[in-house]
Design a protein around this nucleic acid. Structure first.
Length: 465
RNA sequence: GCGUCGGUGGUAGAGUGGUCAAUUACAACAGACUGUAAAUCUGUCGCCUUCGGGCUACGAAGGUUCGAAUCCUUCCCGACGCA
């Protein structure tokens, strides 16, 4: 993996770049579609690609349980297994998460109304005593060496260590993989955040060590094959890049400490190839946390803000030096009937949309909103590389005069949701994914055009109204 | 005409003397969702309310009872059976 910075934001840490992976380039900043179980829920790979997506992220924990990482390995890696392809037909870039998030979602957050984003206005969540619930049922239990998971599928127990996570991820064969970490709950107190952070740092080092070990083994194996005159190209999937993960909850000192340690960790001179910023935030101080971290992380390596993806968060992250985002929101909200528009989110099942025959957005170029002839004639650009209409300013939404009738109306999509039709979630997800992926592309373009701050102000004025 | 069973909130369908403004499901309405235990979950769902409560309700009208959706009488309506 190679990361090249093309242009930097004048005021701020932001940058535009290109990540070159064994399966193609990723123009950054980029939004990564989440495909936990080797599928972006409700979408086929062509729909994901046509929404402008460049990379898909799968999950170690889920794919290890089902169908099993060895099957994915034997299928030629996750990209091949799920038939995730670029426009030119080649396998497209993929990443896998380490299972660290499941330490949180199946552990401290299990069965509770806790999300990784805290509302600072809810101080009751932050009283540690209230959360002394160590006996509460949970599917993930943390030990010093690793985490035991009780499968949510069949109840079987699985012990995941950093080494195990990396082994699984090597089998899954994504281009970018992550160190095994502990994503802490925002409700944990500062003492616990400190302990968890130390654990995450130890696990990071072990992840990197295992990664290097597996790469060396693989190298040796290919050399053997070469010596025996075996075609090397069929030997294995390409080498993955390993990202370390910065944690530290909401505290400045812990965040800064983590950024420093994670960027300095090395095994025999080999460092992490990039960095994930993980963990829990209060919405209100996420930007400062990201800034603290990115001021410390080495500039020449990509940074991925894990699991973040509301429009305002994307502007914040990019301004503060984030290159990659992934988030379940476009697809989860889509399946649940919430749809992104430039004027904010709408809940399409609301009564007022039942007879609304207009498109979700009349100037949207996605498959759902555009008129059939516009989409298929290519007058709306939808290729993965140029989802922005060429020559248009990133700050202006290209006003596309469609033929009047959208392919699918609000009323129709509302009808599909009310009727519980599968297509409902699909259409809403296509639009939402296009909306978010292309927002990031527009932000990228706005930096290239030296119009980032204007674009940010204009967009958020309409969106957060 | 006689007999039997039945008529409950938008719908289906519980309840069969007090704990019933009435279980539940669906529908409806509103909301939540940030490295996916998620095509999921939550709230409201007779009228009024100073949120304490008040009022009108279980086909209709009477009655029994301290108290009735629940028991009795008559009537109306429906299904089935016999003429």
């Amino acid at each position: 993996m190679i990361f090249k910075i093309e242009k930097k934001l004048k005021d701020g840490l932001g940058r535009v770049g290109i990540i070159t992976t064994p399966h193609g380039d990723i123009l950054t900043p980029a939004f990564v579609a989440v495909g936990t179980k080797a599928t972006v829920k409700s979408l086929n790979p062509e729909q994901v690609r046509d929404a402008g997506t460049q990379v898909v992220l799968g999950n170690t924990y889920h794919l290890y349980l089902q169908p099993g990482d060895e099957i994915v390995r034997d299928a030629g890696g996750i990209g091949n297994f799920m038939n995730w392809r670029r426009n030119d037909g080649g396998i497209a870039p993929t990443m896998t998460d380490s299972g660290g998030f499941q330490v949180f979602s199946l552990g401290a957050a299990y069965g509770k109304d806790i999300s990784k984003i805290t509302k600072i206005t809810d101080p009751s969540l932050l009283i540690p005593e209230r959360f002394d619930d160590s006996d509460a049922p949970r599917l993930a239990k943390i030990g010093q060496d690793g985490v035991s998971f009780k499968s949510h599928l069949d109840g079987s127990i699985h012990y995941i260590t950093p080494e195990k996570s990396i082994q699984i991820q090597h089998n899954l064969g994504a281009d970018i993989i992550f160190a095994f970490d502990e994503c802490t709950s925002p409700t944990e107190d500062s003492k616990y955040q400190g302990e968890a952070l130390e654990r995450t740092h130890r696990w990071a080092e072990r992840s990197l060590r295992e990664h290097q070990k597996l790469l060396t083994q693989k190298q040796k194996h290919s050399q053997d094959l070469l010596l025996r005159n075996v075609d090397r190209s069929s030997a294995s999937v390409s080498d993955p890049a390993l990202f370390g993960i910065v944690q530290g909850g909401r505290e400045e000192s812990l965040r800064k400490q983590s950024a420093k340690i994670i960027s300095e960790i090395n095994v025999e001179g080999k460092y992490f190839d990039g960095f994930g910023i993980g963990g829990s935030f209060a919405k209100e101080d996420m930007s400062t946390a990201v800034k603290w971290v990115n001021e410390i992380l080495p500039e020449d390596k990509p940074r991925h803000l894990l699991g973040i993806g509301e429009p305002e968060d994307l502007f914040m992250g990019i301004e503060n030096g984030v290159d990659l985002f992934d988030c379940v929101l476009p697809t989860r909200l889509g399946r649940n009937g919430t749809i992104y528009t430039k004027k904010g989110k709408i809940i399409i099942t609301n009564a007022k949309f039942r007879n609304d025959l207009g498109p979700i957005e009349d100037d949207c170029g996605c498959y759902v909103c555009s008129a059939p002839e516009d989409f298929f004639s290519g007058s709306l650009s939808v290729s993965a590389d140029t989802a922005l209409p060429l020559g248009s300013s990133a700050c202006e939404t290209p006003r596309k005069e469609t033929s009047g009738t959208p392919r699918y109306s609000r009323a129709y999509i509302a009808h599909l949701f009310h009727g519980k039709e599968m297509l409902a979630g699909t259409l809403a997800s296509i639009h939402n994914l296009y909306f978010i992926v292309n927002l990031v592309k527009k932000i990228r373009q706005s930096i290239l055009d030296d119009k980032f701050f204007e674009f940010k102000e204009e967009f958020l004025k309409g969106y957060l109204r």
